[in-house]
Amino acid sequence: MGTVLQIEGLRKSYATGRRRPPRPALKGLDLEVRRGSVFGLLGPNGAGKTTTLKVIMGLVRPDAGRVTVLGRQADDLSVRSRIGFLPEQPYFELYMTPRRLLTYYGRLAGMSSERIRERIPYLLNLVGLGDVTDLRLEKFSKGMLQRVGLAQALLNRPELVILDEPSSGLDPLGKIEVKEILDGLRREGVTVLLSSHQLSEVEEVCDRVAIISGGENVASGGLDDLLRSKDEFRVVLAGPLLVEKPLLPPSASWSSDGRTLYVKRESLSRVLRSLIDAGIGVEEVAPRRMTLEEFFLSRVKPAREGEDV
């Protein structure tokens, strides 16, 4: 599995005024996105997610670092014909219709008229706008504009799709449709880099994530690896607890269902012995899997506290 996007030591600061020091947005960011993956870029507001995406798209010039996209430097124009980009809250000239807009962007992408004509109905149907192909965008809701944005990002059959908050402004049905589109892209082997605040969405669709905080990558890897706790275990009892709860170390805690225990690594053998001594059957012992939200908070909070210091 090759690397589609490689970022090394990326730094970027923004000027804040003549007499004020520049505000660093990225402080030596490293990131790797592998081919065919759906990669989630997470982070609190101001973490540097959008700046990272802008650097990849050549919209912002980095102060230092290297960005390689599909084997070429990010500022190499030829690579853009292989990338699709959906900016955060996309906006378009509202006098246009989806057909005219996509034709315009298709021409800018260097696509032939025939190919553009072929792609437009397919894409507009894909994003659920097949029946408003010739309606002016000024009549569109925010969610519909977001769908147009998604269609334009997929216009040139990109190998890498970069989406900044793709579900922003969409209703629950729209969010499900976006998830289905992302699943479809994954099946086609398209690499997706997705920046989002919606952790549940990322947990559902991404197979790898990176968490950025304060302009640095504070955690990255496969979702399963990251969320599997290394120092806490989940102990599932064989059946409902019929006897009195045995005395357990304070680090062990019962879940609300009364059948599951969360135990720290150092207490695991003591807890298991206590359970067996009390005649309680154990069905499963496995590393605890955190929710993405728990993991996110565990990584972002310390990083922020470090910054505050």
């Binding site: 798209m57 050549g58 919209l59 124009l77 030829s78 690579v79 853009r80 014909s81 990338i83 699709g84 980009f85 900016p87 809250q89 996309p90 906006y91 378009f92 000239e93 962007y105 800018l108 992408a109 260097g110 944005g149 334009q152």
Partner: peptide, 11 residues
């Protein structure tokens, strides 16, 4: 920000 849509093409 319509400029993002245009400049993300090979232009």
């Amino acid at each position: 920000r319509t400029i993002y849509n245009a400049l993300s093409r090979p232009v």
